[in-house]
């Protein structure tokens, strides 16, 4: 009963079985994250929710909360680690914000702003990745995929379709689509699928629209993500 741990000096209550992220979200405390979405099983892959517990760095979305933990989520050292992780995500793909429809309402971008990332720091990979526009209602731009597996989880666990999977290892890891041609248009994917509405970047976007919200009025234009919340929380008003 009434178990607590300490997050940046603040007492956080938790129930048995909750992760640090679950308890923090329930208490209204923001820990930056990309691959985490409370509707799906924690994945722990993007590492952006890294926190420090007694000198160990763990992902808050997969670490179980336990009594008396001292969790650091806001020191400059932790924010610097998050910035470096984000910078690696940016240089590994092709994230051309000025040309992207998702810009301004993109969770990758918003978390980068939150952590104070101003530049990518590392050397760009400039990978050559395709754009799949074969589906009538949805386009997939693999340049913007950060392998968070939210679409994989949503399609498998919510839509019951298993349209998406990650194939390959290490640098070769990439998103694949379950259809004879490998194209989205030949899969069972539909615009109403949950998987069409969970991407934290501009990798999965609806067709036939774009740049609808003027600059200055977009989701993260005026206030940061720790106040606004995740893209998914605003998905309904966007769709």
């Amino acid at each position: 009963m009434n178990k607590t741990f300490t997050l940046d000096g603040r007492e956080i209550h938790f129930e048995t079985g909750q992760t640090i992220m679950d308890a923090a979200l329930a208490a209204g405390v923001y820990i930056p994250h990309l691959c985490h979405n409370p509707e799906f099983a924690p994945h722990g892959s993007c590492r952006v929710c890294v926190v420090d517990i007694g000198g160990r760095q763990v992902s808050a979305c997969t670490a179980a909360a336990s009594e008396g933990l001292q969790v650091d989520s806001s020191s400059e050292a932790i924010q610097a680690t998050r910035r470096a992780i984000l910078q690696m995500l940016f240089v590994e793909g092709n994230h051309v914000c000025p040309a992207c429809e998702k810009s301004g309402a993109c969770q990758l971008q918003a978390v980068a702003y939150y952590t104070g990332m101003l530049a990518p720091h590392f050397t760009h990979f400039f990978p050559r990745r395709p754009v799949d526009a074969s589906h009538p209602d949805v386009v997939i731009d693999f340049n913007r995929c950060i392998l968070c597996e939210l679409c994989v989880r949503a399609s498998r666990d919510h839509d019951g379709k298993r349209v998406f999977a990650i194939s390959g290892r290490g640098l070769e890891s990439h998103l694949v689509i379950d259809s004879p041609s490998g194209l989205l248009g030949d899969s069972s994917f539909a615009a109403g699928d949950k998987a069409a509405h969970v991407c934290p970047t501009g990798a999965i976007l609806p067709k036939g629209r774009g740049y609808e919200t003027p600059i200055g009025e977009r989701l993260y234009d005026r206030e940061p993500i720790n106040i606004i919340g995740d893209v998914r929380a605003h998905e309904e008003e966007v769709v």
Partner: peptide
């Protein structure tokens, strides 16, 4: 100082790297 997207990450012109 790197001023602007192109100086910072290549920007739109770097789309030719595809």
């Amino acid at each position: 100082v790197a001023v602007g997207a192109c100086a910072v990450n290549g920007g739109i012109p770097a789309m030719r790297n595809q």
